[in-house]
Nucleic acid binder design. Structure first.
Lengths: 203, 203
DNA sequence: CAGTATACCATACATATGTATGGCGTGTCA
DNA sequence: TGACACGCCATACATATGTATGGTATACTG
C-alpha cells in the first residue's frame, strides 16, 4: 500500500483539521461531501478509509462525527515572521516581514499562521521571554484565558485575553509589575490571532 | 438568570473540554451521562441547556456530537503528559519514547537531536516551564553557563552547567527556591546534551 | 405561599449519521 | 493483459444521537 497522500486526500485532511480548529469538533461525512460538492457519501467514505489506512486519520466506528486527525502531512513550511510593527502601519504589510521561520509540522495551517518576535517581558511569567518567537494562528476571536496577539491603538501586543462581558475586554500581562489593559467601548481592539506555540532558540 | 456555575456544571464542562483534548472531538450526551453515571439522557440535557444559557457552551441543534466549549471558568490548561523517564531506566530506551515532536528544520542536526518533555519547574526563571519540550542536541560536554540535560544517579534533569574546576561540576537550577547540585569526584554525572531550543504548545 | 433553579429518572420519537453494497470510469505498473 | 489505487455516483439500512415530554424531589428566595 502506498503511504503518501494525493493532493485531494491532503485537501480532505486539511478540511477536517480546519473544521476542528474552527468549530471545536470534526465534520461528518456528509458535511465533508457538501464542502467538496460530492453527491455521494460513499466518495467521502473512500477517502476516509484511505486516510485511516495510511495512518493520517483515526475514527471510532459507528460513532457520529468521531474523526480525529493523527498526522499532518507536512512538507516544511516557512511562516513569515512579523518583526517590529510600527505604529500606524497595517500589521500584515510586507514591510513588517522580517524573515521566515521554517517550522515544518509544528504548524497545522501554515497559511493561517505567522510568527512574532517578542519584545518586552510582559508575558515573562507565562514563560514567554524577550526574543522568543510566538507562533500565532490568525483568528479574530478568542476564548477566555487564551494568549492572544492583539492590536490596540496601532500597537501590537501579546497578552492573555479575557472578555468578562460583551462590553469589557481585559488584556492581562503575565508580569506582576505590569497592569492589565482594560478596554471599554468603543472597543478599539482587534484580536489578530491566538498564540499556539512558543519557540526559543538557544546557543 | 444566574450566571455562575455550580460545581457539577463545572464538572460537566470540564469533562467535555477534557474529551475534546484527548479525543479530538466532544462527547455525546449519552457519553456524558455514562461518565457521570446518570441513567437518563435528560439529565445531561438539563445541564447542557443550563451551560448554553449561561454562555459556557455552544452547540449546533440537531447535530450529533456538536458541542463546543466557549468559555472556561478559571482558565485551566490541560497539558498532556506524554512520558516520563523513570529512575533507573536507560534514558534512550524505546519505552521512554512517548511520541514524536515534529520540528522540521528548527533543528540543525536532526539525527543528533531529541526532545524531552520537561517535568518540574527548576528552570522556570529561564522561561522553561513544566510541560515544555526542550530540544536537546546530543553531546557529552558543555561549556559554562550552557543549559544542559544531564543524568545524575539515574535521574535526568535540565539545569545550567558550570564546571569550576576539573573536580567540581555545578548544576544550577533557575529557580530561587532550589539549590544547586554540586557534584564532586567520583563524578557520576553524564551530560546528555545541550538545550538548543524550547518549544511550548498552547491551545 | 408561589416561583424558580437545581438535580435526577424514564420513555418515545425523529433524524442525523456511519455502514454496506454495487456500479462506472480513469490511470499506473508489473 | 490483469491487478490495483484512485475518483466518483446512487441507494438502502441500522443505529447513534439529539429532542420532547412528563414525572419526583430538594432547596432557596421574595
Amino acid at each position: 500500500m502506498k503511504t503518501t497522500l494525493t493532493s485531494k486526500q491532503v485537501a480532505l485532511l486539511d478540511f477536517i483539521q480546519e473544521q476542528v480548529r474552527a468549530q471545536g469538533y470534526p465534520p461528518t461525512l456528509r458535511e465533508i461531501a457538501a464542502r467538496f460538492k460530492f453527491r455521494a457519501v460513499g466518495t467521502v467514505q473512500g477517502y476516509v478509509r484511505a486516510l485511516i489506512a495510511k495512518g493520517f486519520l483515526a475514527h471510532e466506528p459507528e460513532h457520529a462525527r468521531a474523526l480525529c486527525v493523527r498526522q499532518y502531512p507536512g512538507s516544511r513550511f516557512h511562516i513569515p515572521i512579523l518583526g517590529q510593527v510600527a505604529a500606524g502601519q497595517p500589521v500584515f504589510a510586507p514591510e513588517n516581514y522580517s524573515g521566515s521561520l521554517p517550522c515544518g509540522e509544528l504548524v497545522a495551517h501554515p497559511a493561517a499562521t505567522f510568527a512574532l518576535h517578542v519584545r518586552g517581558d510582559s508575558m515573562i511569567e507565562a514563560g514567554i521571554l524577550e526574543g522568543d518567537f510566538v507562533l500565532v494562528q490568525k483568528q479574530a476571536t478568542a476564548r477566555n484565558a487564551d494568549i492572544v496577539v492583539a492590536r490596540i491603538n496601532n500597537e501590537v501586543t501579546v497578552k492573555r485575553f479575557f472578555m468578562d462581558s460583551a462590553k469589557c475586554i481585559r488584556l492581562v500581562p503575565e508580569n506582576k509589575s505590569m497592569a492589565a489593559i482594560i478596554v471599554e467601548p468603543p472597543l478599539d481592539v482587534e484580536v489578530l490571532g491566538k498564540v499556539v506555540g512558543v519557540y526559543r532558540k538557544l546557543r
